[in-house]
Amino acid sequence: MIKATNLVKTFKTGDTKLTVLKGLDIDVKKGEFVSITGRSGSGKSTLLYQLGLLDHPDSGKIIIDGVEVSKLSERDRTGFRLMELGYVFQDYAIIPELTALENIMMPLLMKGFDMKKAEKQGREALSRVGLLDKQKNLPSQLSGGEQQRVSIARAIVHSPKIIFADEPTANLDAETAMVVMKTFLDLNREGQTIVMVTHEKEYADMTHRTLFLNEGILENK
């Protein structure tokens, strides 16, 4: 499903250069639930941005679902994200003027669903993360954990081929974190491919495979 080879990403700040990804390879099969761990600052988010088409690597090749995405135009990359990918950002990233339900409906509306159908499917996604009763709340009327769950619901609502989740449990208490993990595991059982970044061994151990990002490359654990 995902095959990335020889990814290199370097950041320049003033005179100092920091190469975060140093010829990294990753291969994720369809239906796999893969977790990526590593020290803070090791480049986990950076890697996920490259795979999620939010950033361009300096070099290397990324093939997702048979498409060499590095060659797509900016417009088509946006289209690809809409049709194929779901992304859970490290800090929820939901739109403040939209209610929980409306936030979740955005990808569907963009895909051309009519309002009714988008609402129905949006509610299903919300109930998956246990937030149906908060559908009319604005983000400011939701707790941090609830906002995180809205962002997860938004990432799964349009049945993407792959879900990328950057520390989806980081801001949640153990109980809520378990709800989120259970959601991911359920989805995975239904065939969903998931790549999740996490700090916590406990949650990493629930996935099929854990990769350790160290010195710019991935190691199996």
Partner: peptide, 16 residues
Amino acid sequence: RKYIGILKGIGVNARA
């Protein structure tokens, strides 16, 4: 800007 970025990030195109 942040929210515009997020919208684009989840696949809402720039034209919209």
